[in-house]
Design a protein around this nucleic acid. Structure first.
Lengths: 215, 215
DNA sequence: TGACACATACCGACTGTCTGGTATGTTGGT
DNA sequence: ACCAACATACCAGACAGTCGGTATGTGTCA
């Protein structure tokens, strides 16, 4: 009767199942409205397992933000927008990619750490900082391409690659807020069109050379 | 001993005190983490008074969003950015005004309805819609100036006044998210500089005629 | 090879506190 | 006398967190 491996969910998977449940449920309901029991139910584990892996609900919030940072950085690193050899084309491809993945349910494409940061920034500095590391860690990856594009094209102007990378993230996050308030994902895509136009302006992209080669 | 008017807080003020408390506390802690007792304590009223004026906590959320819409529309209507006779200058003055009022504590300048919409969009459609009406009602006031400016200056381009007004709001909301995640109000101001540059580009504002008159 | 020690992963009943909400007063103006 | 605007007392369920326990692996030494 008793088999060596008898647990239906394989041993050791409780922690990651809880993090996946947190990613999905917190994006839909928010951090405060998500109870530990909600998470345990969705992950099919008990409270004992929850508090074995996480010292508190707040600790799970921090871990969820770090889990988000890891999975999304892997996702974006593997994304096809890195392909163009021209740095500016990579930046524009990034914006296009962000627009393309806005589809389906709101809770599926919106940003966990943006949502959490907005909610707990004052009451839980640990979660807030973990969210901040995730967001600004991501902007740093874009900053490199922006800086390279600027150097390659000899672009002047009183702005920095760092601030433009952050602005890109602000437009994305703000688009999510409007999409939620208006219950329409198209509102998030709309702002990315304006961002695309803005970046082309900064780099003096004219209608003609919009696609392909530069000077 | 008993005087005609003996209540320290004047009779009849409980509802508005609760709405003001909601405005301040929900911005700092979020909707779900704000308890009815929190609100009653801050407004110095009892739970009886709370449920006399609001049928439920959710109903207070809706009322708080409507209260926010009323007070902010009054605030912006009275703001000095309407003074320029040139419509484009009014639009740019709006952006400058939004940047200027970003000061002090995060909870003091961030947006109640943006925060609430982000948190409860899936769990409370009534609150979400009230937040949506507040946000998009505000963008409509800016849309008029944008449309006028575009007509006055004969500006073409594949964008609409409506979408630019919404984009402006997205940049503001996204700036708030980044400011909270990074715990630094300057992050919100930074994106408004990019927005200002973008709008000047759309309207072909050159460095020379940046301040004063047009064609 | 096996047995003992120990660690890790997980279980589920339990607890004290807090939650939104209700039922029943009391007060003051008209 | 009546009604809106409150206050007081209370409730049932939900909440985060605790605790004693069990099952399964893992390292170690004879």
């Amino acid at each position: 009767m008793s088999r060596p491996t008898k647990q239906s969910p394989e041993r050791g998977g409780a922690r990651s199942r809880l993090l996946e449940a947190a990613r999905d449920i917190i994006r839909a309901k928010g951090f405060a409205a998500t109870s530990v029991d909600d998470l345990c139910g969705a992950a099919a584990v008990t409270k004992g397992a929850f508090f074995h892996h996480f010292g508190s609900k707040e600790a799970l919030g921090v871990a969820a933000a770090e889990f988000w940072a890891e999975t999304t950085s892997g996702f974006f690193a593997a994304a096809p927008y890195h392909e163009p050899v021209d740095a500016l084309q990579r930046v524009l491809a990034y914006v296009a990619f962000r627009k393309a993945i806005i589809m389906g349910d709101l809770a599926e494409f919106t940003c966990l750490v943006g949502t959490m940061a907005q909610e707990v920034y004052a009451s839980s500095p640990d979660i807030r900082d973990a969210c901040g590391r995730s967001i600004f860690g991501h902007t740093a990856t874009l900053e490199a391409d922006i800086a390279t594009a600027r150097r390659e094209r000899g672009i002047a102007g009183d702005w920095t690659a760092e601030s433009l990378a952050r602005h890109t993230q602000a437009v994305i996050q703000g688009g999510f807020v409007l999409a939620k308030a208006g219950n329409d994902p198209a509102l998030a895509r709309e702002s990315l069109d304006h961002l695309d136009r803005y970046i082309r302006h900064l780099f003096h992209v004219t209608e003609e050379d919009a696609n392909e080669r530069n000077h």
